[in-house]
Design a protein around this nucleic acid. Structure first.
Lengths: 233, 233
DNA sequence: CGGCTTTGTGACAATAATTTTACAAATTCC
DNA sequence: GGAATTTGTAAAATTATTGTCACAAAGCCG
């Protein structure tokens, strides 16, 4: 049974989402303001947080930052009024998993919650992960390649972890910076390239023609764990 | 132009909604009872159905079930009196997209209709899109044609995305420049042609006689995802 | 402190993408 | 039909993005 945390002050929204989510096999927890939201978040570790941006007691953005800080891979869906247009892109770049503008169709929100849980549930639970001849143990913070241990630095390990949590998806440098380095950290994007390079040198057979950590020119990087052979061009 | 079907017997509601929706760029069709509603639904394939629950000749719930049976993904917004609380659960389980209780604010209803149409546009998009033998995954930034992956450059991908968001509509070169390239960017319109050409070469079976990316001489381009043979008029 | 590792930066080369250019082909309008 | 306009196309020129290196700064640990 998956728990969803709704941080939102509008009672009508509570009511309808309660009905919808409970009847769809979720447990919906409700927090009416930012502070209560953070408390509830810490207490329940929900599968997904649905966060309204305009909240009493603590602005939604603050709540968002705090959640990100404490649990960088926590899935968050942001609710925002249509007037807050500007924030959309920013939020996605900062690492909201999705956003929905108000007024929204409840079914739409449900669909998006499902999409997010579908995306994350596969990877989140595993203690170990393997691809190619590489074995990753998150518990031990250890990586072996063809049986031999490879030592990764903390950042390299975090990066690898984020990749394994989001396979096959294009991840921009900004997203990596926010999710791996942190929301209040602004190194140049060149930094990311360097780390990718180091990861490649440690984990790829041929670092110049990487199989796992692929460059998507103009967009970012993509982690491809299952080796597919593509036409060589 | 989007068509909305209103199944409702109260003439005062007809009048108010007619004014509001027509002036907001929708075509509002009205059916005064359940049977007429179903007929109208079958005939017009509306973008959204607004369904009152208390109807003459055929109860609203029956109409609802029939619509779901014939078109499972048809967006439906339900109108119900506040007293009919019980139905909410049932309706959401059956898959109404949203509900509005009477008495309602016309503007709110309009907003919810917009929210629903937005959803039907978007959920398709944020995940995947397909036309012909082409599959587009926006998250993976990947396009496959007959199962083989086709690599698109960033601008090509953005252009394709804009086309999928605006199918069957003539899009001028200037519009493309503004929406894909950006407001403060002024390349020549020849640039657009080049990108269209490369999209055609990568995605069309016969790039010289394109099916999907059609030229509308003197106006721009039109994306036609479902291959139809044109009636000559 | 001093040697070690890790991390961030800027320079520059390598590569890929984009725009321009020039001209051919197609279409429209008299 | 023929001129004017619009569009298609390929190659060259330009611009942007990425890979890589060397090195400096920051941390860490004895």
């Amino acid at each position: 049974m998956q728990r969803i945390l709704l941080i939102e002050d509008d009672k009508r929204v509570h009511k309808i989402l309660m009905l919808l989510f409970e009847s769809s096999g979720f447990v919906l927890e409700i927090a009416p303001d930012g502070l209560a939201g953070l408390d509830a978040f810490r207490a329940t570790k929900p599968a997904v947080v649905i966060l309204d941006l305009t909240l009493p007691k603590m602005p939604g953005r603050e709540v968002f930052r705090e959640i990100r800080k404490e649990a960088p891979s926590q899935p968050v869906i942001v609710l925002s009024a249509a007037s807050e247009e500007v924030d959309k892109v920013l939020l996605l770049e900062l690492g909201a998993d999705d956003y929905v503008t108000k007024p929204f169709s409840p079914k739409e929100l449900l669909a998006r919650v499902r999409a997010v849980t579908r995306r994350t549930e596969k990877t989140v639970l595993t203690e170990n992960y393997s691809f190619g001849d590489i074995l990753v143990s998150f518990a031990k913070m250890e990586v072996t390649r063809e049986g031999k241990t490879v030592t990764l630095t903390p950042h390299e390990f975090k990066t690898l972890k984020y990749f394994t949590e989001n396979p096959e998806r294009v991840i921009s440098r900004d997203e990596l910076l926010n999710r791996v380095w942190g929301y209040d950290c602004y190194p140049s994007t060149r930094t990311v390239d360097n780390h990718i390079m180091r990861l490649r040198q440690k984990l790829e057979k041929d670092p110049v023609h990487p199989l796992y950590f692929r460059t998507i020119h103009g967009a970012g990087y993509k982690f491809v764990p299952s080796v597919k052979f593509e036409n060589p061009n």
